[in-house]
Design a binder for these strands. Structure first.
Length: 296
DNA sequence: CGAATGACCTGTGAGC
DNA sequence: TGCTCACAGGTCATTC
């Protein structure tokens, strides 16, 4: 499921339950995720408090009180759900930011965190492309999985100038470049198509064509940067996109799928009403959706 | 170095 | 109904 907006939605859903909570017990039901769960995974977590839940790109980072970080990635099909949370009296479920997946199959509940106080956080992942690792806090920045990550699209570091540096000289199509986590970190198959549509740029255009010889960003690149920021912001605000087995807990979340301009809309008219018909092509083995008329 | 491909897994929907 | 195939929101290792 998850690209940056979905991971951020998960983070916001888990944070109120997890931050400040102590992990009383951990159930390791299936250790063979994409990478095997680390040695002594259970022992290293039990009894520790989660001090903060952060996100970098598509990674969730649970900081623990022993200067360790629980690094989590949801892969293609990972999700968390919260069970057994006591609702404090009449307190309103503050925004209700709990992002539930509803697994059809508990056989894919691979890890369960039992928190002090009774809440449980259950990790479900049918395809098991997700993983969890434990990393000493001081090694986080240099960890191989995080070290080479590119620009974070939600912060100040994404600018046309910064992206120009990354795209300069690249012959790869924009679709491939924007999907490359070493360049920009957080976009995936959905939001790359959506951002390129918003920027009116063809997914097949060479990435380097948005950079002038002097390394300066072109107007097209400025447009692209604005489109990326906007689509990510809009999707986060909508609680991400819920496809297939994912549903929102309270009807307010995971609504961005209704606002796709092109993703999974092959054959439909371009929302710009320019007479274009949305096309699906395959790039790097993955579907890309775009309007051949307005996206050049 | 950059670019393209296969591999890792399970589930689902389309088409026969 | 049951089978086969294509495809699914990610990314790592391998190859050219």
């Amino acid at each position: 499921m998850p690209e940056l907006p979905e991971v951020e939605t998960v983070r916001r859903g888990l944070a109120p339950v997890l931050e400040g909570a102590t992990i009383a017990r951990v159930e390791k039901r299936r250790p063979d995720l994409r990478f095997p769960l680390p040695k002594r995974f259970v022992a290293r977590l039990q009894g520790h408090k989660v001090t903060a839940l952060r996100r970098r790109a598509k990674y969730l980072l649970a900081e623990l009180d022993d200067a360790t970080v629980l690094l989590m990635h949801l892969g293609m099909s990972g999700s968390f759900r919260i069970e057994g949370e006591k609702k404090a009296g009449s307190r309103k479920m503050d925004g209700g930011t709990v992002y539930f997946a509803q697994p059809k199959n508990e056989a894919h509940d691979h890890v369960v965190f039992h928190l002090k106080g009774g809440a449980r956080i259950v990790y479900n992942d049918p395809r098991r492309f997700g993983f969890m690792l434990l990393v000493p806090s001081r090694d986080l920045e240099t960890h191989p999985l995080l070290r080479d990550l590119g620009l974070e699209p939600t912060g100040n570091e994404l600018s046309a100038e910064a992206l120009a540096q990354k795209l300069a000289g690249r012959a790869a199509p924009l679709k491939a470049a924007l999907s490359d986590q070493k360049l920009i970190a957080g976009l995936g198959n959905i939001y790359v198509s959506e951002a390129l549509w918003r920027a009116k740029l063809s997914p097949r255009r060479a990435a380097g064509s948005l950079v002038r010889a002097a390394g300066e960003p072109t107007e097209r690149l400025r447009r692209l940067v604005e489109a990326v920021r906007a689509v990510i912001a809009d999707a986060v605000e909508a609680g991400g996109s819920s496809l297939r087995d994912y549903v929102q807990a309270n009807g307010e979340l995971g609504l961005f799928q209704h606002r796709f301009a092109v993703y999974d809309r092959e054959g439909e008219p371009c929302p710009r009403n320019d007479g274009g018909k949305i096309r699906r092509i395959v790039q790097s083995g993955r579907s890309t959706f775009y309007c051949p008329l307005c996206q050049r």
